[in-house]
Design a protein around this nucleic acid. Structure first.
Length: 479
RNA sequence: CGGAGUGUGGCUCAGCUUGGUAGAGCGCUACGUUCGGGACGUAGAGGUCGCAAGUUCAAAUCUUGUCACUCCGACCA
């Protein structure tokens, strides 16, 4: 990566204070504003447009696999939430309750959904009768509420936007297949659209979703070496079906329980984009997710013909399928450059009297700041090309960063030293018992991120207890 | 839920120790000059000092209470 030159004083440099840098970027890129309720934010147009693009891309991919969208209520009666024991224990500490309707106390309090498994189960119990009713492959786009103690924009807010898919299947095999299929949709989306490389794997029992038989996850690594759980897909087996009585009559006229899955991705991904790609000048958006891909910046725009040419370039690129804007505000060019960089707009086109006379424009890439002089007649082919190259190189750079911050430990001393000194993933063998998992948290401050599908044999024994190892596990400090 | 801190124009903060006319910078509005990496001039608008009670001739300032937020720990997409 090109050496970051800090051009704007208002953004703390990430080397000095990563957390402050993150907050500065979120504010300066005008993604959010704080509100009077802790952990609840206004998502401003620049932030919401990113979410809309995430929605469009994911929704399209979902529907290609047969997903249908639905909408279920915001409220869950307490009795419903309590039907599955592990589930309620997992979520009870962080739900918000509605106790009054108007001035009257409610007979039964209602929780604001922290997730909608129980509502879907209640619905499926009524809606599913026969094997002919299966599978159900539903998804909803909504917001959920979890009363977090510590909050951060996008990464952990009390209300957040997400999609939650909930499916019901006739067989365990089919449910497992759907669970893995959706994990793959998430992984492809992250890599191809967000340019964020991920590790696919399974969560340990300690880290899995409350009520799930198995939780699969994609884990990504932020620029500061901390891990971020970026999407999860759960296989519930028939546990919820038994708790909620979701049964169907099979072809042999026998009653069977359904097998269920759920999977979700949230506005947290906007935080991931910031922390994977951002630099000391602000946000850097991958071209495929950027709401505005090209900003045309006219120079000496009051001179004859400059603005006209800028609009002409905009129209030309719009016809080529790009999202383009002209910054025709009366700020100075320097201001506009900084603004475009803070907002992470992938490419800007500088256009002044000198360029117009010479018959070309100056294209500048946000990520590398590389300047490319392009004759006007080549713009409509060259700009899309530059955007594609940038998209590809952003993924490669992120992957190189992740690989450079992935370490291997085969002894406890080595493990602790790495956890202390080298932010990143640590790969190490594990015996499979929770005592060792807890001990690694206690002694090294890390949690298990996942048991990756791609296993390696680092050694034969658990890094903590020395007993025979069952799995290679990715460990790390997580957001 | 523990520990620390902060509440004063839209934002960042000074003023509080030692009570006495509410301040600065940035931003905002209008006009003009500028324009290839956050330009400048002139004129202007904008604040019941988080809230409540108390002490006092007088409270942003002292006392008590209360609410909110931020940061650090334990819990979490």
């Amino acid at each position: 990566m090109a050496k970051d030159k800090k051009l704007v004083e208002a953004i703390t440099s990430m080397e000095d204070d990563f957390a402050q840098w993150y907050t500065d970027v979120v504010k300066k890129a005008e993604l959010i504003d704080y509100t009077s309720v802790k952990g609840c934010m206004v998502i401003k147009p620049a932030g919401y447009a990113i979410w809309e693009n995430i929605q469009h891309e994911l929704d399209r991919r979902f529907k290609e696999t047969g997903v249908e969208n639905v909408y279920l209520p915001l409220f869950i009666p307490e009795s419903l939430l309590q039907k599955e024991k592990d589930h309620v224990e997992g979520f009870a500490p962080e739900v918000a309750w509605v106790t009054h309707g108007g001035l009257e106390p409610l007979q039964e309090r209602l929780c604001v959904r922290p997730t909608s498994e129980t509502l879907f189960c209640d619905f499926y119990a009524k809606d599913i009768q026969s094997h002919r009713d299966l599978p159900k492959v539903y998804n909803q786009w909504c917001s959920v509420v979890r009363w977090e103690k510590t909050t951060r924009p996008f990464l952990r807010s009390r209300e957040f936007l997400w999609q939650e898919g909930h499916t019901a299947h006739a067989t365990a095999e089919e449910a497992e297949e759907r669970t893995i299929m959706m994990l793959n949709v998430y992984a492809d989306f992250c890599e191809e659209v967000l340019a964020i490389p991920v590790v696919k794997g399974r969560k340990t029992d300690k880290e899995k979703f409350a009520g799930a038989e198995a939780t699969y996850t994609i884990e990504s690594l932020m620029h500061d070496g901390k891990a971020l759980q970026s999407g999860t897909s759960h296989n519930f087996g028939d546990g919820f079906a038994k708790a909620f009585g979701i049964q169907y009559t099979d072809k042999e006229n026998k009653l069977q329980y359904v097998h269920q899955t759920s999977w979700g991705m949230t506005t947290r991904m906007i935080g991931a984009i910031i922390m994977v790609h951002g630099d000391n000048s602000g946000l850097v958006l991958p071209p495929r997710i950027a709401p505005v891909q090209v900003m045309v910046i006219p120079i000496q725009q009051k001179k004859d013909g400059v603005l006209d040419k800028a609009y002409e370039v905009k129209d030309l690129l719009k016809k080529a399928g790009l999202s383009v804007k002209v910054d025709d505000s009366d700020k100075s060019p320097g201001w506009k450059f900084s603004e475009q960089e803070m907002r992470g707009i992938p490419v800007r086109i500088e256009l002044g009297p000198k360029d117009i006379e010479a018959g070309h424009a100056v294209i500048v890439r946000r990520d590398t700041r590389e300047k490319i002089i392009v004759p006007f007649e080549e713009l409509e082919t060259k700009v899309p090309e530059v955007l594609e190259t940038m998209q590809k190189e952003m993924l490669e750079r992120a992957r190189a960063h992740r690989d450079a911050h992935t370490y291997t430990a085969s002894s406890m001393e080595e493990f602790k030293k790495l956890a202390d000194e080298k932010p990143g993933f640590i790969k190490a063998m594990w015996c499979g018992c929770q005592e060792c998992e807890d001990a690694l948290k206690e002694e090294a401050g890390v949690t298990s991120r996942c048991i990756p599908f791609e296993q390696e044999e680092i050694s034969g024994t658990c890094v903590h207890c020395g007993k025979p190892a069952k799995h290679m596990v990715y460990w790390g400090k997580a957001y």
